[in-house]
Design a protein around this nucleic acid. Structure first.
Lengths: 121, 121
DNA sequence: CAAAACAGTGGAGTTTAGTCAACGGTTTTG
DNA sequence: CAAAACCGTTGACTAAACTCCACTGTTTTG
């Protein structure tokens, strides 16, 4: 598919998609019609883009993601010894989730406190 | 306590603390010794800083945090009707945690795939 | 009491993750 | 077949969250 369709279907802007491609997060091929310069994006780019969104929610930077996506997609060893790297990311993400959950509890308490006492004498 | 001690105990730089104060996230008083310009930070600034870190892990921006910290600390109604605002943040954080957990699973699968098959014919 | 460590101020600089504008080609569509 | 919609490239720009620097004044310490 071409970039416009990918943009529509992913909800991201064309600029963002090109930015991701420059960063090596997604890939495209020259497109079937070699007379123009239009690129062709594979169907599974949509899945990759979902993974990118998940990773960002987990606080992973694009730089780390470039490394990680390789690991996640082609879990092919001896390309990269990144087991330790992976474990570091896992620890990092777990810590972040724990913090986020702590914060979520605070939010819920605050909302309860706001909703409960219309006891305002 | 003075800013240096707060920096040491919180693990943040003095610059970051001053930045947070400019943003209205923490507060200080003129300090007991009024002859100098040194500020005094209350003990509970450390707790606030923990909450800030939690909020950031939850993907909350400093701008939103300025609003939220007021709600979280003094859960005093009729200052602010922010129940809807709070609920929006709650939804946002829950969605982010869900994504982060999805990503975490992917990381763990990738690590398992990397660790398991030293079957390398 | 002098040197080292610490504090405040102001303003400039950095990084990350995009976003925008301008331009010249290419398809699509009415 | 012309206008509208789309595409790629280049390069400048932005917002958020810090970070650094230079300078001056204040405490602490050996």
């Amino acid at each position: 598919m071409r970039i416009g369709e990918l943009a529509r279907r992913s909800g991201l802007s064309r600029d963002t998609l090109r930015f991701y491609e420059r960063q090596g997060l997604i890939r495209s091929t020259p497109g079937p019609d070699a007379t123009n310069s239009y690129r062709d994006y594979p169907e599974d780019a949509l899945i990759t883009l979902e993974q990118i969104a998940d990773a960002q929610a987990a606080g992973i930077s694009i730089a780390d993601l470039t490394v990680l996506l390789g690991q996640l997609q082609a879990a092919d060893p001896d390309t990269f010894d990144g087991e330790a790297f992976l474990q570091d990311r896992i620890d990092e993400v777990e810590a972040r989730i724990a913090r986020a959950e702590r914060f979520l509890e605070g939010l819920k308490r605050a909302k309860a406190a706001l909703a409960a006492p219309p006891v305002r004498r």
